[in-house]
């Protein structure tokens, strides 16, 4: 190895490092872009691959601060939510916007809601979103499964 070649090494390392960092950080813009297009073609594939078992863990850690399956807490109870009309638990204090939305919860509407509730139903009160499309798909699969049980 000539001294000149050796001198190149730090440069190459820097480039490699920069490339690595860029690909690591590019995750975020890519996800944000995917979120905007959420309900369209590509996400249908992701939604279909949702896994209810993974979804249970994700549900407990992401949604469990505010929701339970069988009790109204900060948010309304979730058992039966799949197929239910938005804002239809009689004794829960929903926002007017959600009650008036006319939305029925299915995989596509849940995916839009969890991608960005305010963009989907302006004036809603949840304000909580999940940026990872795979995690959303798993949670939706879990909600569907639990809604069918009972």
């Amino acid at each position: 190895m000539t001294p000149r070649q050796r001198a190149l090494h730090p440069v190459i390392w820097t480039l490699l490092l920069a490339a690595g960092l860029m690909s690591a950080f590019s995750l975020t813009p890519k996800q944000a872009g995917a979120d905007e297009a959420a309900p369209q073609a590509s996400s249908a594939g992701i939604l279909a691959r949702g896994d209810a078992l993974r979804g249970q863990t994700a549900y407990e850690s992401r949604c469990g601060g505010c929701h339970s399956l069988d009790a109204d807490r900060i948010g309304p109870r979730h058992r039966g939510v799949y197929g239910r009309k938005a804002g239809s638990i009689a004794d829960f204090d929903y926002s007017e916007a959600l009650k008036a939305s006319g939305v029925v919860w299915d995989a596509a509407s849940l995916d839009r809601w969890l991608s960005g509730p305010e963009a989907f139903i302006p004036g809603q009160r949840m304000g909580f979103s999940v940026s990872d499309a795979g995690v959303r798909a798993d949670i939706i699969a879990y909600l569907k499964q639990e809604s069918e049980r009972r």
Binding site: R62, C63, S129
Partner: peptide, 17 residues
């Protein structure tokens, strides 16, 4: 622990809003 984990994730998940 369950409530604290849920709360941590809840606070992170509302940041973009």
């Amino acid at each position: 622990a369950k409530l604290e984990l849920g709360a941590a994730n809840a606070y992170l998940g509302v940041i973009p809003s």
